[in-house]
Structure formats: C-alpha cells, structure tokens
Design a protein around this nucleic acid. Structure first.
Lengths: 179, 179
DNA sequence: TTAACTTATGCAACATTTTGCATATTTTGT
DNA sequence: ACAAAATATGCAAAATGTTGCATAAGTTAA
C-alpha cells in the first residue's frame, strides 16, 4: 500500500472529493508524493470497497455534484499501522545520474543543458518552499506537534532542492560549462 | 523506458549476464537505480526481441552456463536518444515525509525511531561512498570524461546522504528525541 | 454566442514493479 | 556424506502507475 495511505493522510483533517485530492496532490502533500487524478479516482473506489473510507454525494449550486470522502475507523487503523511499520527506503530512480554514466560515450552537450535546466527548476521550487516557510513555519519550535511534522517535511524539501542546486554547480563546473 | 536504459548503460563497457547485472544493480549503478533479478531477466528478454541486445551462451567449467548480453548498434542508438532526450523529474515518493503529516494523530515514538534508524543507514552508506571517492575519485578534475560522469553520480550520492543525515538531526531535535 | 477554461468524474489499455515461487549446478563448510 | 551458500535462470500473479480518451455542467471573457 502506498497511495492509499497518502490519501488517508490528506483526509485526516478534512473531508475531500477526488478533485480536491488531485489538487492537494499538486502541492503540499504532492511535493513528496505525486499522483494523477485518474490514479486517485481509481484508488478511492478501491478504498471504499475495503471500508477505509465512507462517501457522501454533495449537490452543489452552480457546479457539478461532488463526492466527499471521509476516513472511517477502519481506515484510521490501517493508516496508524502503516505509520508505525518500518518503511523500506525506496530506490532513488534518478534518470539523470544514470545518464551521467553515458557521458564518455555520447555528445555531452544535451546532458549539460539538462543539468542547467534542472538547476533552474530547483531554484524556482526552492523559492516557493522558502516563501511557505517564511509565512507559516518561521518558528518551528513554537508549533503544535502536527504542524511540526509538516514543517519537517517542508524542511526536507528545502534541503533537497538546495543540495541539488549545489550539485548542479559542481557538475556544470567539472564538465566545463562554466568558464 | 527506464530499466532497459540502465541495463544498456551497464553494458557500455563490458558484456554481462543477467546474474552479473543483478549484482551490478546491487552496487554502483544500483545506488541510483535499483532492480531485482526477476525484473532484469524479464527486461533482457524483451530487449533481445527488440534487437537492442545480442546474446551468447557461455559454457563454464565448474558453474552453470550463463548467457552473456551485448549492446547492438540499434541498442546504442536507442540509448543515445534517451540520454539526449529530456527526462521529466520523477516524484520523490518518500514514505517518511508523508508519515510526518500523521505525527499529531498517532504515537510519535515509532516514527522517531524510524528517523533514527534512517540516520544510521545513511551514515553507513555515506562512509561507503566516501571510501569509494577517496580510492578512485580523489581528484575529479584530472579524470577522463566518462569517469567524470561516474564521479558526479557518486558526488550526488554523497550530498544526498549528507543532507539526509543533517535533516535527521533537525527532526530528532525538534521532536524532542535529543535532550 | 461561441470558444476556452474550470470543476468534476470516470474507463481502458498499457507499462512497470513487486512478490513469491521453481529449478539446477557447483562450491564450501561440518 | 550432508547441508548450506553461491551461481545462474526463469514463470506467474498481483499491485502500481501512466497515458490517452470520454463525459458533463458551469463560468468567463472576447
């Protein structure tokens, strides 16, 4: 299990529709776990069958109806079990590093370009994270426990981006892209 | 495509059997792309059909026969195309960060324990990487291009581990696991 | 009024990955 | 002589994830 647990985590504090979840997975939670709306709708259906969620169709004025999902007691138990269980560290699966092994065997220019692009993306993402930190998590020690958890995830994101930006610097310099 | 390209990358410098590849994916290349032997054997078969690899059965004294695979011209072209093409950045899919969102809603102790364990694992992995760096990549600027690529992958691994260790420090302190 | 966009849900086909098992030979330790 | 471990390859089923398509209602702006 995996996506199901991320969905239940999102439902801890509020009930959401598939559409809401898809949006949430495009930010915040989605910084660390991406999922398409197709995947989410499919998973929601399975979770209903398993009894982990309950659903409630809500008619909306001025918008199509939506189906709100809520975590059941059974779902909460399954979630707790997962949180407590050991997670085997996932393989990184970073294409870029595998590509680097090829650099003596093909034209290095496109690869250098890709590293430069990647650095820009990271810088943008980092700026976003830093803004969120500044606004909502400026003083982590004073936060309630649940917000501390979210702050730590954010902090990991910040460190991750910063590290990658630094690595790109090293790579571009070593590969001669910087004079 | 993905695993197939990692396999072809491994075959750039030497011909290998499925078993050899499985071992290689447990170290070096496998630091950035993990694959089980089942997956590798299946993929090798597909790649043979596609014409990306050629195979040669080798009888061995004192060991079961093995099938050595070699990259074909067609395979090399496919690999070159992949290296040059843009890779969309993969989602991180880090369970640990998703779990953190749950920390206000369940017993935090097991999670703190998992972070501490993770830190130890990272420290071990870091020590290994540093040893490899010291032995084979002490002076990156003087390396030939293809070794520079491998060095950069290693450097990314080192930075990754170091970053994660630092983050674990922050997390353990904020969650009160350190007095 | 018509096109483009947002909200909202879903199917089907395909690709990828994981898990568990099955087989066989040879080497090494007891 | 026997058990365990390493070498070597593979199938089948299930879980997961991606891609492309389909549908529908309501909103906004030219």
């Amino acid at each position: 299990m995996a996506l199901s647990h991320a969905i239940m985590t999102a439902l801890l504090e509020e009930n959401l529709s598939g559409y809401d979840l898809a949006k949430k997975f495009d930010m915040s939670l989605g910084f660390f776990w991406q999922a398409s709306h197709q995947q989410i709708y499919q998973e929601l259906k399975k979770m209903l069958e398993r009894g982990w969620l309950s659903s409630d169709t809500v008619e909306q004025a001025g918008k199509p109806n939506k189906i709100l999902y809520a975590l059941t007691g059974e779902g909460k138990s399954a979630l707790d079990n997962w949180v407590v269980a050991e997670t085997k560290a996932r393989s990184a699966k970073e294409d870029l590093y595998v590509k680097l092994y090829n650099i003596g065997h093909c034209d290095p220019e496109p690869l250098i370009g890709e590293i430069a692009d990647r650095q820009l993306q990271c810088q943008r993402q980092l700026a976003l994270y830093l803004k969120i930190k500044e606004r909502h998590y400026a003083e982590p020690e004073t936060l309630p426990v649940n917000r501390k958890g979210i702050y730590l995830a954010l902090s990991a994101g910040i460190r991750q981006q910063q590290m990658h930006i630094d690595w790109c610097d090293e790579a571009l310099e070593l590969l001669g892209a910087v004079a």
